[in-house]
Design a protein around this nucleic acid. Sequence first.
DNA 1: TCAAAAGTGTTTGCCCTACACCCATGG
DNA 2: CCATGGGTGTAGGGCAAACACTTTTGA
Lengths: 227, 227
Amino acid sequence: MDFEPLGVAADLVILTVRDGSLQVLLIRRGIAPYRGRWALPGGFVRPKEDLEEAARRELQEETGLLSDRIHLEQVATYGEPGRDPRGRVISVTYLALVPDLPSPVAGTDAASAEWVTVDEVLTDQNRLAFDHHRILTDAVERARAKLEYSPLAAAFCPDEFTISELRGIYEAVWGVQLDPRNFHRKATKTDGFVIPLGATTTRDGGRPAQLFRRGPAATLHPPLTRG
Amino acid sequence: MDFEPLGVAADLVILTVRDGSLQVLLIRRGIAPYRGRWALPGGFVRPKEDLEEAARRELQEETGLLSDRIHLEQVATYGEPGRDPRGRVISVTYLALVPDLPSPVAGTDAASAEWVTVDEVLTDQNRLAFDHHRILTDAVERARAKLEYSPLAAAFCPDEFTISELRGIYEAVWGVQLDPRNFHRKATKTDGFVIPLGATTTRDGGRPAQLFRRGPAATLHPPLTRG
DNA sequence: TCAAAAGTGTTTGCCCTACACCCATGG
DNA sequence: CCATGGGTGTAGGGCAAACACTTTTGA
């Protein structure tokens, strides 16, 4: 079979919550096109490499995260002719949700990678290279929607976390304030969402808080609501 | 830029509701590989053609539907090496929801195309060529989920429809029975879901039913529930 | 007059919000 | 003992499931 010349890239929207705000990992492009502009990390899919495999490889190169335990999901594919001035490139985009990393960016391109607040990036239509503004918009909306009916917020947390840390994720991603008391009830009563570890911590001040880990639930019944 | 030899296809999961069941449009493959097996319609994206544009072109070729008014949405992209024995092929899959068509299949390949009940296709893992069983599974799950919080069920209906016809869509897609009286209230009270036309019809027997058309709502508040 | 489907009213129970209140720690 | 955050109890409103009931047609 003959094919037109065409490349397939796996691009990543890597989100985390730091300092109470939703942030995305961006890299500064060192070469043309869009040299010096910020862009989503990503790269071409290799021959014989699966799409998700490529995404996991890029994720590890950028964050150093061995990604078996990292939540990674395909969001959408962008293929408009002309979206890349170098030629026809199809971008398969993946969304990764990671905990606040101890070493911000441990990957090979560390020097040129940076966490940036999502709101700040999205207010400027021209901050990002290619059609990455739109890709980021779509991915963030997906993440916001998924928090409602999936236990995904826990993917932003370290292995052990408190209920108020979990609540902080929701507040940062949705940009709302939630009632701590009602949230506590919902999170702990929803079957399989979080599992108590018995231990407590006082790292947040005040009365010691119970520690939890992620539960086995795949969906939340009933869902959490965004307002 | 050099690229490995690789093709990008737009494949379609075209769903409709006929005779009270959810059905998918399949074509019988006339050539190898998988000659004689059933498969989802689709084809390669042309140079300079957008992905969605390719999907709309395929949709029209298969169903004759001029597709401006047809709901079409991207579901996922499949790119596992080896999924197509002919070489590396990335499949960008679109979901189309169409009303029960007067002329079942009016396209060029009409002779070999057929509506098949989704349940029947999915019970046999080997009914479909390539990885189309999985693609269909994913697309149907997407459709089921979307009915809850989007007004998409109306996409299965003709321009004018009754509330019980709309309810029939939900019952067919979800495979459940819904209370006609409560459903009527929900559908008519949900802002922007359906718009009354003033006219009535007796095509379903019994007391005349009001006719409605699709409303402008993009999402349903509150969502309809699946059981 | 009966069957069939459309549509409305009403009850009941549940969930969710709002907020009062108590608990357990550090300083 | 006070400030801080963790966690429980509870009243009240609103929504939705369940179902009795009325309406409007065709046969």
